[in-house]
Write a protein that binds this DNA or RNA. Structure first.
Ligand SMILES: Nc1nc2c(ncn2[C@H]2C[C@H](O)[C@@H](COP(=O)(O)OP(=O)(O)OP(=O)(O)O)O2)c(=O)[nH]1
Ligand SMILES: [Mg+2]
Ligand SMILES: [Mg+2]
Ligand SMILES: [Zn+2]
Length: 572
DNA sequence: GCCGTTTTCGGCCCGACTGTTTTCAGTCG
């Protein structure tokens, strides 16, 4: 798909046009087009072939012509013109905090700044500070921005951010008189990574709380500390933004601070068209405040139903909320079991009994013990003989422990030739078969996954793209082809909830569900603590607009057995 | 550059904070 190529081109053009002093609204038009194209669920080339480019919101005749030229010829004249006279490496300096397009243009024109080295030079020799409109403090703030820029580690995983935010919230509750308090921003929306941590507090005494906030023990740097806003850097170069508002604005502030930015702008446009105004302080008709204490009031005053944070991305949720037709998103309470966890039969250290008791404690009604298969020497894969032992143990435990059904399963390796690491006779005796690729990430991955899905005993493909958020992109795989075969064969795909995987991702899971594919949200736990990550997987599922009907492990066990049986019937 | 049951022209989300200003521009959320 060329969607992301075109989205990136428009985003770059927006940045360069802004740098060149182009009309802000034109710049915005490029930004919006970039976002919308990046978020499209379908191939833009398909829309183009149907001659429907201008049906895409934010795409008019001008941008449609540019897209058309690009798709026909592989080139975009306007893009080349815009980028032509811009030194490479200049525009990326806009990532530096406190250095925006105006200042960068000034430094470029007046002082021939073309890269980071040049910028450091004009800051060190004071020449930037001497330019009109500049000054010592502005220069100092840019220097601080460069320090952060050079140390920054990029976005952090949701699974790392969640415990951090919980700790800060606890600390604030212990040390101050906050009333309501909530995570906000991308973390509340459960994005797989977050650029920073955003927290909202309800208080009559903002300044006091922010003073306490910037003095927390883990603070390494204070970026700002006012009456309503504070911003700090904590250990690990992670930025935390705190916003404090009075009770009558807590709901509207939570709405604002949760975002996304595009969602906020869309809501505010709707309000404006109706003669209303939304800000973080409330929803207003002239001077009269219509609501703001509770988040629901913002939506209700626009005749929208309250929208769950996870889908607030301006990807159609506002239109659906207007029709009172939002999806009934799957929630943690709907989860009835975990269909992929490891025991001490393979590379985990937890016993099946411990796992079963933990699962019961979580209120699950079933749990599948899916250990690695025989060739997986890296993970103490289970030999056929030991597998039989395992079945025995599970059988005994199922009589011993009531209130939970332990399923015997496997995470069978898909080998280099596309065959599975157990013979069918063994797979046939498992309650559930999860198959996955753990080696040969660049070798005919698509064909191997397809071959695995064509096996009648394979029920779920685990971590279908193999990406690791912090380490690697994932397999070389044609996901469209995989999705088609998953749909045909009745094979479920996993949303692996392990924080560094979250695979399938939100967008891919949504595509899968749109094709009628069932998903299973599994923790792939190797430790009892890993069971906690189910909520991350549920977050991904909610961002994918999944309902309980889409998610295998919200179903009663009998229905799962039927699902497996149906595939077997079809493919045997 | 996009968009439209108040418009095909004249709008485009709204506010905090800082620093450089003598009334506001730039940056950020
Ligand atoms: N109305 C409005 N709200 C904004 C704007 N920029 C940011 N916000 C709101 C919505 C964001 O979710 C929220 C927090 O800002 P952040 O920059 O931290 O963004 P967010 O957390 O969504 O993403 P992140 O993962 O931090 O990059 O503030 C804006 O320009 N207008
Ligand atoms: Mg954020
Ligand atoms: Mg933030
Ligand atoms: Zn596993």
């Amino acid at each position: 798909m060329k969607n992301h190529i075109i989205a990136d081109m428009f985003e770059k053009m927006a940045a360069v046009l802004e740098f060149k002093g182009e009309m802000p609204f034109k710049v915005n038009a490029y930004r919006k087009a970039s976002r919308v194209i990046g978020d499209l669920q379908v191939d833009i080339e398909q829309i183009w072939r149907q001659g429907r480019l201008e049906d895409i919101p934010g795409i008019g005749s001008g941008l449609a012509k540019k897209i058309d030229e690009f798709l026909r010829t592989g080139r975009m004249t306007k893009y080349e013109e815009v980028m032509a006279d811009v030194p490479p490496g200049l525009i990326e300096l806009l990532e530096i905090q406190n250095l925006g397009p105006k200042t960068l243009a000034l430094a470029h024109e007046k002082l021939q700044v073309n890269n980071l080295e040049d910028l450091k030079r004009v800051l060190a020799d004071g020449s930037l500070a001497r330019l009109p409109g500049m000054g010592a403090k502005k220069a100092e703030n840019i220097i601080k921005g460069i320090e952060l820029y050079e140390r920054a580690k990029g976005r952090i995983s949701l699974g790392i951010a969640v415990p951090l935010v919980e700790e800060i919230i606890t600390q604030l509750q212990e040390r101050t008189s906050v009333k309501r308090i909530s995570p906000a921003g991308s973390l509340r929306r459960m994005r797989e990574t977050v650029g920073d941590i955003d927290i909202l507090v309800e208080t009559e005494k903002g300044a006091e709380i922010i003073a306490e906030f910037v003095h927390l023990p883990q603070v390494t740097r204070v970026l700002a500390a006012g009456d309503t806003k504070g911003s700090i850097i904590v250990e690990g170069e992670i930025q935390v933004d705190l916003r404090a508002v009075r009770p009558e604005s807590y709901g509207s502030a939570l709405q604002y601070f949760t975002g996304s930015k595009a969602h906020n702008i869309h809501l505010r446009e709707i309000a404006k068209k109706r003669g209303l105004k939304i800000s973080e302080y409330g929803i207003f008709c002239g001077k009269k405040q219509l609501g703001g204490s509770k988040e629901e009031e913002i939506y209700e005053n626009l005749d929208l139903v309250w929208i769950p944070p996870e889908i607030r991305e301006d990807r159609g949720e506002i239109e659906r909320a207007a029709e009172h037709n939002l999806p009934n998103l799957v929630s943690l309470e709907d989860i009835a079991g975990d269909l992929h966890v490891h025991s001490n039969y393979s590379d985990a250290s937890i016993s099946i009994e411990e796992i079963a008791r933990k699962a019961k404690e979580l209120g699950y009604s079933y749990i599948a013990i899916c250990d690695h298969s025989q060739s997986a020497k890296y993970a103490r894969g289970v030999e056929v003989e030991r597998s039989k032992h395992k079945w025995q143990e599970i059988k005994q435990l199922n009589t011993k422990i009531s209130g939970i059904t332990i399923l015997s399963g496997t995470e069978v390796d898909i080998l280099a030739d596309g065959t599975l690491d157990y013979p069918d006779e063994i797979l046939a005796q498992m309650d559930i078969v999860v198959a996955a690729i753990h080696s040969g990430f660049k070798q005919r991955v698509t064909e191997r996954l397809i071959a695995a899905m064509q096996n009648p005993y394979v029920n779920i493909i685990a971590h279908p793209t193999g990406r690791l958020i912090s380490k690697r992109e994932g397999y070389e795989v044609d996901l469209d082809a995989v999705l088609r075969v998953a749909a045909q064969t009745g094979t479920a795909l996993e949303i692996n909830a392990y924080y560094d995987r979250l695979d399938l991702s939100d967008v891919n899971a949504r595509r899968a569900a749109d094709m009628g594919i069932k998903l299973a949200i599994n923790t792939d736990a190797h430790l009892l603590e890993h069971f906690r990550m189910m909520r991350l997987g549920v977050g991904v599922a909610r961002r994918a607009w999944l309902e309980p009907k889409d998610v295998l492990n919200t179903w009663p066990l009998e229905k799962i057995r039927q699902f497996c049986q149906q595939k077997w019937q079809k493919l045997k």
